[in-house]
Nucleic acid binder design. Sequence first.
DNA 1: AATATTTATCGTAATATTGCAATATAAAAA
DNA 2: TTTTTATATTGCAATATTACGATAAATATT
Lengths: 108, 108
Amino acid sequence: MGATKTEHFTDSQNQIAMIAKALGHPARIAIIEYLLKVDTCICGDIVNELPLAQPTVSQHLKELKNAGIIKGNIEGNAICYCIDEKTLTIIKDYFSKIILTLTDQKCC
Amino acid sequence: MGATKTEHFTDSQNQIAMIAKALGHPARIAIIEYLLKVDTCICGDIVNELPLAQPTVSQHLKELKNAGIIKGNIEGNAICYCIDEKTLTIIKDYFSKIILTLTDQKCC
DNA sequence: AATATTTATCGTAATATTGCAATATAAAAA
DNA sequence: TTTTTATATTGCAATATTACGATAAATATT
């Protein structure tokens, strides 16, 4: 045991959970906020922005990339990162729909 | 090591990450979707809905409760669970704002 | 009171995550 | 070509998560 039983859940449930999980770390939220703040692709500047060692930041970037939340383009000896709007839109829309459904509910 | 260095990040970043983390498991997404589907508080029915053992479900419910995503009221020998709109609204608004900021950006 | 029902907690095994030092890789600059 | 710069990978230790059997706790039913 210890491994999530993804096979018991729907593709949609696994997808939303996977994106949410990737967002479930303050360093990764900080990375997203930084990419948003600078307002363009960032080529080699992220490590200095975070209070973590370079391999740790690299690992967090990898997880965001695997979840489809950011994209990385090789640009010389640096890598340009930016937010992948598509994926963030998926969870935004998902939670928007939940909130909309909820307001119709009378409960607790 | 192994523990997240929350002290290095802002309260906001930690809060968003904490909520996202609680949503980062398909069983917990399934619980939320079930609470939404039945359209009222649920008193003792969640365990049968999920393909997991009762202690496991209880643990997932606890995590959702700790993150403020669901509320539980004792009702006789059962417990009534329902979604806490406030908390889901926090992340919905957060990601809405991010998407809005993003559309102004020309990138990659 | 005895039993059933519902949920929580404990203990534990399996696995995943976090973080970093050391090292590798690859392109740029000297 | 050597050195510098930027990022990734490896290996490892510390900690967290996931899952469940066993058991506890608390109310309901008989």
